[in-house]
C-alpha cells in the first residue's frame, strides 16, 4: 500500500528485515525517505524505533540493506550525512549547552572559525543562544530537547532523524521547532519525525509512514493514503447559511451516502466519491443558489487516517 515519493530519496530501505533473536523488529520494509518532512507513526512495538536505529546505523539489518545516499547506513561515511536526535534524555551532563555542541561538531571533524560560526548558527536556530552557557545538568526538559536537536543539526546533515522532538517543549517552543523543521525541509533536507502525538503530524508532516507489527502499512501524503480507502465514506463539513435547503439538494447527489445537520449553518456529509460531490457543489455555488462559506474534509488527519490504516491492517 505504497503511495509515491516525489523527489530523489536521501535514504532508502531495501527489503529490510531485522530479527532480535526470535522476535522480529521490522519485516521486509521497503521505503524511501526523500527531502521534506516525513512523519513516522505507529503503535508501541510497531517497529518505529528499530526503523530509526537501522537508519542511524545503530543496528544492522538481518536481511536487506539500508542506504544513506550511496553508503550503507552502518558505515562511518553515511553518518556524516545523518543527524540523530534520540528520545532518551541523556547528554554530557557536566557540559554546558554550547560546549556540548562544540564537542559534537569537533567529533564530526569541524574546527576553527567554521565550527564556532556553525555552533552559534545552530544555537540561534533552536532558540538557545542566550541560554547556551547553562550546565546541561540543570537545564529544563525543553532546553535539553532543544540542545539534543541542535547536536543533530550541528554538522549540517542531509537527513535529520528526530524521535519525539516536541516532548517537554512548551507551546510557543513547539511552533518554533515546527517552523525550524519546515525551514530545513525548504532547504532540501530530509526530516524524519517519529511521534506518538498524531495531531503534531497534521501541522508539519508532508508525508507519513504508518507502521504496524514491524511492517510499513502505508506511505505517502495523508490525502494520497486516504484515497486508498475509497470504500470508506469521506467526512466532509460544509458551512452554509441555507443548510437545510442544501441538505435536501445534496440528498439527490449519488455520491452522498448520508447527511447530518449539525447546526443551523453546518452540515456533515458522508461521501464516497469526493470529486463528484465537489463538482456538484461548485455548480450549485456558481448558480448562486447557495452561499457556501466553508468546505473541508474532517477525516484527512493523521489520526483518522491512522485509524483507517490500522483497521485495514487488522483484516490481514
Amino acid at each position: 500500500m505504497t503511495a509515491i515519493a516525489e523527489s530523489v530519496p536521501i535514504a532508502e530501505f531495501e527489503n529490510v528485515t531485522k530479527w532480535y533473536g526470535p522476535v522480529i523488529g521490522v519485516n521486509d520494509v521497503r521505503v524511501a525517505i526523500p527531502s521534506g518532512i516525513t512523519g513516522l507513526v505507529g503503535t508501541n512495538g510497531a517497529g518505529k524505533t528499530t526503523l530509526i536505529k537501522l537508519l542511524t546505523g545503530h543496528l544492522r539489518p538481518t536481511l536487506g540493506q539500508v542506504r544513506i545516499g550511496s553508503h550503507d547506513a552502518w558505515s562511518a561515511s553515511a553518518k556524516q550525512r545523518v543527524g540523530y536526535c534520540p528520545e532518551v534524555d541523556t547528554l554530557y551532563e557536566e557540559m554546558t549547552g554550547r560546549s556540548f555542541l562544540i564537542t559534537m561538531a569537533r567529533l564530526h571533524g569541524w574546527a576553527g572559525s567554521e565550527l564556532r560560526d556553525r555552533v552559534e548558527q545552530v544555537l540561534q536556530q533552536v532558540g538557545m543562544s542566550d541560554r547556551a552557557d547553562r550546565r546541561l545538568r540543570g537545564c529544563s526538559k525543553g532546553m535539553r530537547q532543544r540542545i539534543k536537536l541542535a547536536q543533530a543539526l550541528v554538522h549540517d546533515p542531509d537527513l535529520i532523524v528526530v524521535d519525539e522532538p516536541l516532548n517537554g517543549v512548551d507551546p510557543v517552543g513547539r511552533l518554533e521547532l515546527m517552523d525550524l523543521f519546515r525551514a530545513l525541509a525548504d532547504r532540501g533536507k530530509a526530516v524524519l519525525v517519529s511521534s506518538h502525538i498524531l495531531g503534531e503530524m497534521d501541522d508539519f508532516a508532508e508525508r507519513v509512514i504508518f507502521m504496524g507489527r514491524g511492517r510499513v502499512l502505508a506511505v505517502g501524503t495523508l490525502a494520497q493514503i486516504r484515497e486508498l480507502f475509497a470504500d470508506m465514506p469521506l467526512q466532509v463539513r460544509v458551512i452554509c447559511p441555507q443548510a437545510r435547503e442544501l441538505a435536501r439538494e445534496l440528498m439527490t447527489c449519488e455520491s452522498v451516502r448520508g447527511v447530518t445537520i449539525d447546526r443551523a449553518d453546518e452540515l456533515s456529509l458522508q461521501v464516497v466519491q469526493a470529486a463528484v460531490l465537489f463538482r456538484h457543489l461548485a455548480a450549485l455555488a456558481a448558480r448562486g443558489d447557495f452561499d457556501v462559506k466553508r468546505l473541508e474534509t474532517t477525516d484527512v488527519t493523521t489520526e483518522a487516517t491512522f485509524g483507517y490504516v490500522m483497521s485495514a491492517a487488522a483484516q490481514f
Partner: peptide, 15 residues
C-alpha cells in the same frame, strides 16, 4: 550505562 555512548556512535569516526 548512562546511554551517552549514543553520541559517539552517531559520529562519522569509524567505530
Amino acid at each position: 550505562e548512562d546511554q551517552s555512548l549514543i553520541y559517539l556512535l552517531v559520529t562519522p569516526i569509524p567505530r
